[in-house]
């Protein structure tokens, strides 16, 4: 009897945690497991410092180049068109203290929580590309659904021709994912860049997701079977950025009132 009871509790826990934005208590974002992971990562982080430094250096150099291109020469004038178009997105840094990539539903834990302004549903990227989406938040920690999670869809588009689809992990290889819902008539080349579409304001437009490495006609659908090589190296994630969009609430309520489900 006790077995049946406890097993029922376990199954109900599985079912309740299956939704993408579950309760914050029974997962790695609660204070207990968060602090354990924090302690562990305080010890372990020294081993990855050199590679973290290297990737930060590379990102810095890239940003400097971009900044140089945007800097206006002294004799130019600049007229802002509409202030609503500026600063709709803000980034927050956080440290990854727990990561998994071999299960079929992987999660990460970061050391920022509601005290630092993290909310459920925020997009998470790092300097290489898309990482995932915030699932649940406690005061000091948050759990993130990794892109390597068979339920997470990321709205994405092919950079060269603006055809959009959804990126979804197929659970096989943590370096590859599938681009779904691209119709057969679209010409997709090997090596095409796939980036976020920016349609649902979780991610800003143009964050890298991956590169097309294989295109096959789908077996039983009207869609192409496209395999991506992910830009993000999930085995080496140590710092991430949270995307805070000031328009997300407005967009979400708009979608809700018009009953559009957006992924």
């Amino acid at each position: 009897m006790l077995f049946v009871l406890l097993e029922a509790v376990a199954v109900s826990l599985i079912v309740s945690s299956n939704s993408q934005q579950g309760s914050a208590f029974f997962n790695s974002s609660n204070e207990l497991s968060g602090s354990v992971f924090q302690t562990q990562s305080n010890v372990v982080e020294y081993f990855s410092l050199s590679s973290v430094n290297k990737s930060l250096m590379e990102k810095n150099a890239e940003l400097l180049t971009e900044l140089e291109a945007l800097r206006r020469p002294a004799d130019s004038i600049f007229i802002p068109l509409d202030s609503a178009l500026f600063a709709t997105i803000q980034f927050k840094g956080a440290k990854v203290i727990n990561n998994s990539l071999r299960l079929s539903q992987n999660h990460l834990t970061i050391n920022k929580g509601s005290n630092h302004g993290v909310k459920t549903g925020m997009g998470v990227i790092n300097e290489q590309g898309v990482v995932g989406r915030v699932k649940s938040v406690s005061r000091n920690f948050s759990t993130i659904i990794s892109l390597l999670h068979t339920d997470l869809l990321v709205s994405s588009k092919i950079k060269s021709n603006d055809v959009f689809g959804s990126t979804k992990w197929d659970g096989l290889n943590p370096e590859q994912a599938k681009l779904m819902y691209v119709p057969r008539h679209v010409v997709v080349e090997m090596g095409d860049q796939v980036v976020t579409s920016g349609y649902n304001s979780i991610f800003p437009e143009g964050i890298p997701i991956g590169t097309v490495i294989e295109v096959k006609p789908g077996t039983d659908t009207n869609y192409l079977d496209i395999t991506l090589k992910l830009d993000t190296d999930f085995s080496k994630i140590s710092y991430v950025y949270l995307v805070e969009s000031f328009q997300q609430q407005e967009l979400d309520s708009l979608y809700q009132s018009t009953e559009i489900s957006n992924e």
Binding site: A10, N27, T109
Partner: peptide, 16 residues
């Protein structure tokens, strides 16, 4: 489960 983010899965299997 708490640390693996696999709520209930380890518990259910271990109980069996």
């Amino acid at each position: 489960d708490l640390f693996y983010d696999t709520l209930g899965i380890h518990t259910a299997s271990l109980l069996l």
